[in-house]
């Protein structure tokens, strides 16, 4: 008997709707963007998902430090791994889109730089884990780094937009975004389910990886 919780069915339904609706429902015709505006349903939710997963990973790290249960450490690592996957997907989809709309994949946009830094931090987290042999110590040191890095990543979200007068991203610095037009209510109908659906998919992936890790821990693999 397949054990499936209700939120997994919800994820499947939402993502099915996002794929069908996102590719077929009408979208506003904007100069330059044209049909590429549909990337909104796939690219932007990646960042929401990434931030949600990293936040969950940081919470698990705090739990590890207070309880010292190795399970929390497994949770924290696997959530961060899926977060990185989402970050990479978001970055690739964004660069692909930017190549056609901005003319080049990387234009040193503040949001691009911010995402690059976020990925650097979490790659460093895995290098750190790789270089400590003792299990308890690895869990503790990496939990500390996770919290420390997350807390400095957050101010970055407020600092970078402050430094750059304008971002190339739609909706910033006078660029047409989906907020600026009346048709946006139609896009919202797909966008909000997309954000929820992709984030849930991220947590679903993480739970599978976590179960796998816990089982292989028990078997001593």
């Amino acid at each position: 008997m397949l054990r499936t919780e209700w939120w997994k069915w919800l994820t499947m339904a939402l993502l099915l709707y996002v794929f069908v609706g996102g590719l077929l429902l009408p979208v506003p015709r904007l100069p330059i963007l044209n049909e590429t505006i549909r990337v909104l349903y796939f690219h932007v939710p990646m960042w929401f998902g990434m931030i949600a997963l990293f936040t969950a990973s940081c919470i698990q790290a705090i739990k590890y430090l207070s309880k010292e249960q190795l399970t929390n450490d497994i949770f924290s690592v696997q959530l961060a791994e899926v977060g990185i996957l989402f970050g990479i997907l978001g970055m690739i989809s964004g660069m692909f889109w930017a190549n056609y709309t901005w003319g080049e994949p990387w234009s040193s946009d503040p949001k691009q730089n911010m995402s690059a830094i976020a990925l650097l931090i979490y790659f460093a987290y895995f290098v750190l884990r790789g270089s400590i042999k003792d299990e308890q110590q690895r869990a503790k040191i990496s939990a500390v780094y996770n919290i420390f890095a997350f807390a400095t990543l957050i101010p970055l979200l407020f600092i970078l937009p402050r430094l750059a007068e304008d971002s190339l991203h739609p909706g910033n610095g006078g660029n047409p975004g989906f907020n600026a037009y009346d048709l946006d209510s139609q896009m919202r109908l797909v966008f909000y389910p997309a954000v929820i659906g992709w984030a849930l998919l991220g947590f679903w992936l993480a739970t599978i990886k976590i179960r796998y890790e816990i089982v292989s821990e028990k078997l001593g693999l």
């Binding site: 400590i132 500390v144 780094y145 400095t152």
Partner: peptide, 27 residues
């Protein structure tokens, strides 16, 4: 203090430290 607990601490100092100080450095 984190890097001193690892094996290749000189490299890790830079890898762990640089992303964290970027906000300060930019400001």
């Amino acid at each position: 203090s984190l890097a001193s607990k690892t094996e290749n601490n000189a490299t890790l100092m830079a890898i762990l430290g640089f992303p964290i100080v970027i906000p300060i450095l930019l400001m």
